[in-house]
Simulated assay, not measured.
Amino acid sequence: MDQDDVSQSTDEICISSIFPEVEDISVSILHAADSIGLKEIPRYEVKICEEDDWMKRSQESLHPVQVTEGLWVVPQWCTPPDVQATNIIVNPGLAFGTGEHATTKLCLLLLHGCIKGGEHILDYGTGTGILAIAALKFGASFAVGVDVDSEAIASASQNASLNNIRPDKMQLHLITSETSSSSKDDSTFGVMERENTYEIQTITTYCAKFDVVIANILLNPLMDLADQIISYAKPGAVVGLSGVLSEQVQYIIERYSPFLEDIKVSKMDDWACVSGRKRIYLNVR
């Protein structure tokens, strides 16, 4: 998304997207416009690009990231800069969570500071599984990752294996969503589902069972799903909420104040992470 090339006197934003040659671009743009309520199809132009190995180019753009001293996130195809450090190995695939984004770093720092050993962790919106894997490497004894995207579940399962995380230490759940594009027909996910994931109904058994609940998603789902996210945390548990801009923090604090005490805010590059402890007695009406 490029806002710099557009006059500041307008509200226009330019978006560049890549499509396969067989894609009906006009239909895709029509669906996109309908999804956000636009009455007219936006202006667009189509350019034919030369063939390229996009996966290879994407891999070349990712490098080891030092989150803090002794903690690195390392792409699978790179050599860890410090073999003595805690190295989280990731192959992001099509999922979110490479360690480069500020919200991922903020969540990793929160986990690094709050995990003392033996905790049960819920990673709500697990993506690549990076936060659940990190929590286990920091000393947590059990982690659960949930996501609406089967690609994320497959990626998280692969990354768990890359980090030698056993299935009994980390479970993955696909949450069905009306807006999700996930498909259980995906052959890779079919294998993952049998080996390392469970029907979503079993998630209900985790009510108030986690010592740490972390959700690095976006403002709207954090607001809409607040009751559900909080329900998984034990009284006194640490709850971390990220994926929000600094200017959106006020909405998160207002929404979660009835559930959390000792609320703290950490910021990085205009992004924020809000954390607190679940109240023993909730102030809800």
Rank of each mutant, 00 (worst) to 15 (best):
D4H: 10
D5Q: 06
V6S: 03
S7V: 02
S9K: 14
D11Q: 12
D11V: 08
E12H: 11
I13G: 02
I13F: 06
I15D: 01
I15N: 03
S17G: 05
E23Q: 12
D24V: 05
D24R: 10
I25A: 02
S26I: 02
A33C: 08
G37V: 04
G37K: 02
L38V: 07
R43N: 14
E50W: 00
R57F: 00
E60M: 00
E60A: 00
H63S: 09
G70N: 11
L71C: 08
P75M: 02
P81E: 13
D82G: 07
N87R: 06
I89A: 08
G93M: 04
A95K: 07
T98H: 00
H112E: 14
G113I: 01
I115D: 11
G118C: 10
L122K: 03
G129N: 03
I133V: 15
A135T: 00
F138E: 04
G139C: 03
G139D: 03
G145V: 02
D147Q: 12
D149K: 06
D149S: 06
S150K: 06
A152E: 01
A152D: 01
Q158E: 13
A160S: 15
P167E: 00
K169Y: 06
K169D: 10
M170G: 07
I175S: 07
T179Y: 02
S181R: 12
S183M: 07
S183H: 05
S183C: 11
K184Q: 12
D186M: 14
R194K: 15
N196T: 10
N196D: 03
T197V: 03
T202V: 12
Y206G: 11
Y206R: 09
I214E: 06
A215N: 08
L218I: 07
N220H: 10
L225S: 03
Q228Y: 00
Q228D: 11
S231H: 09
Y232R: 09
K234N: 02
P235R: 03
V239R: 01
S242H: 08
G243N: 06
V244W: 04
E247S: 13
Q248W: 01
V249E: 01
Q250N: 10
R255C: 14
S257N: 14
L260W: 13
E261H: 11
I263D: 08
V265K: 09
V265G: 06
K267G: 01
D269Q: 05
C273M: 14
C273Q: 12
G276W: 04
R277H: 15
K278S: 05
L282T: 10
L282I: 14
R285C: 03
